[in-house]
Amino acid sequence: MSTLLAAAGSLEPAARSYLSPTGQEIVFLLVGALVLGAAVVSVTTRQLVHAALWLVVALGGLAVEFLLLTAEFVAWVQVLVYLGSVVVLVLFGLMLTRAPIGRSPEADSGNRPAALAVGAASAATLVTLVVDAFRSSWIDLSGAAGTTRLTGEYLFSHWVLPFEALSVLLLAALVGAIVLSRAKGGSADAKPRAGKLRTGLTKQKER
């Protein structure tokens, strides 16, 4: 691993200083702070639709980061797929499940302290590990690695078989989504089966 890292990364010592960042790095850090902030707001806000919109900000910021890392095509795909379809889907889902507009007091579950602990612990652990492992690695951004032309070439020469398999997977997911969401005959007034289901809220209210 170390030989691989040494062979791949630049060994120029002057370039490794964290105290004299390049322009790219500064932009990356600023956008990164934006992405992180949007992500944090997205997972903590009480307004469900706002969460989706903050997700748009985070994902869009990530697209900029991809651009900064010279992964041009990936960045546009990110914008198209995530911003264009996934978030729209999420918004539709929110609307279809009648998510309340405005502040919702029940956006977070009772599992929050545990979630905070686990998230903090994983962040601490991984940051420690990553910093310890890659603090002296340097990315050379000189060559354009992710232009559309280049991407098309390797995708349709080396990766064509996984690509086709993925298209089959997408088709299967499409069919599955249709089957799942198709309303069965007269299911508009489908009721939960008696005795099988329990809603904690109603139960607590009964008590």
């Binding site: 990364g9 490794r16 964290y18 390049t22 790219q24 790095e25 990356f28 850090l29 990164g32 992405v35 992180l36 992500a39 944090v40 997972v43 985070a58 980061e65 900064l68 890392l69 979630a115 905070l116 686990v118 998230g119 903090a120 994983s122 962040a123 991984l126 940051v127 990553v130 910093v131 890659f134 603090r135 690695s137 340097w138 990315i139 951004l141």
Partner: peptide
């Protein structure tokens, strides 16, 4: 660019997602 920047950003995003 330092590899640590995207790596740490990814870690933090991941942890936020976990939360």
């Amino acid at each position: 660019m330092h590899l640590a920047y995207p790596a740490v950003l990814a870690v933090l995003l991941f942890s936020v997602g976990v939360y």
